[in-house]
């Protein structure tokens, strides 16, 4: 009977755990890439969600909403390179055990080992993050350097301009964690 009660309690707690971290306000996620000379491009989306099961924090960015400021380039990015119909999300998974949280009213910066899943491939990545805490609200920003070739994404090239495969992906959002 006691075992059954514990199991029921755990099952009841799971939704609470999964909702333990909530994103507030307008999040931003994106990437910055470079080409020859001073060529650069930035992609940005305000679609981001967090999944938290208490042991693993997942930052999920739907890629269909990424915009670079040029519609045709966005279409090529979605269809030719990211193939978002097959691989709709970029997911960064971080074990809570590796994340330090600041005291109330303080901020801290750090790095943590996470796993980046993109275009059907997953690789360990080093995440640089900054957390600033006010009560139960955390201002979160982080970035990772990645090479799109590691994720079997073709290196974009268009009318003589080839983008460098090394890009920086970043995200910033406010999260509430009771």
């Amino acid at each position: 009977m006691a075992r059954h009660t514990s199991l029921l309690a755990l099952l009841a707690a799971l939704p609470l755990l999964s909702a333990a971290t909530r994103v507030n306000g307008e999040p931003t996620a994106g990437f910055r890439g470079r080409g020859p000379g001073g060529f650069s491009l930035e992609g940005k989306t305000h679609q981001l969600r967090v999944e938290d099961d208490g042991t693993l924090l997942k930052v999920v960015v739907p890629l269909a909403g990424l915009q670079t400021g040029i519609s045709l380039r966005d279409r090529h990015m979605r269809e030719r390179y990211l193939e978002v119909d097959k691989h709709p999300d970029a997911v960064l998974a971080l074990p809570w055990a590796l994340v330090k949280l600041p005291e109330d009213g303080r901020s801290l910066e750090g790095t943590a080992q996470g796993t980046m899943s993109l275009h059907g491939k997953s690789h360990d990545v080093q995440v640089r993050y900054r957390l600033a805490r006010t009560g139960s609200v955390y201002q979160v920003s982080g970035s990772i350097a990645l090479d799109i070739r590691d994720y079997d994404i073709d290196v974009p090239s268009y009318f003589g301009v080839t983008v460098q495969p090394e890009i920086e992906a970043s995200a910033s959002f406010n999260a509430e964690r009771p």
């Binding site: 020859p36 001073g38 060529f39 650069s40 491009l41 670079t68 400021g69 040029i70 003589g160 301009v161």
Partner: peptide, 29 residues
């Protein structure tokens, strides 16, 4: 459109005048 530099599209790296292959495409897009 996010172009802070000129050499992506122009043969003259400081801009103006003759377009390169990428610039001709952007000129149409």
């Amino acid at each position: 459109h996010g172009y802070t530099n000129c050499s992506s599209c122009h043969v003259d790296p400081s801009g103006s005048g003759l377009l390169n292959e990428y610039g001709r495409a952007q000129d149409q897009i």
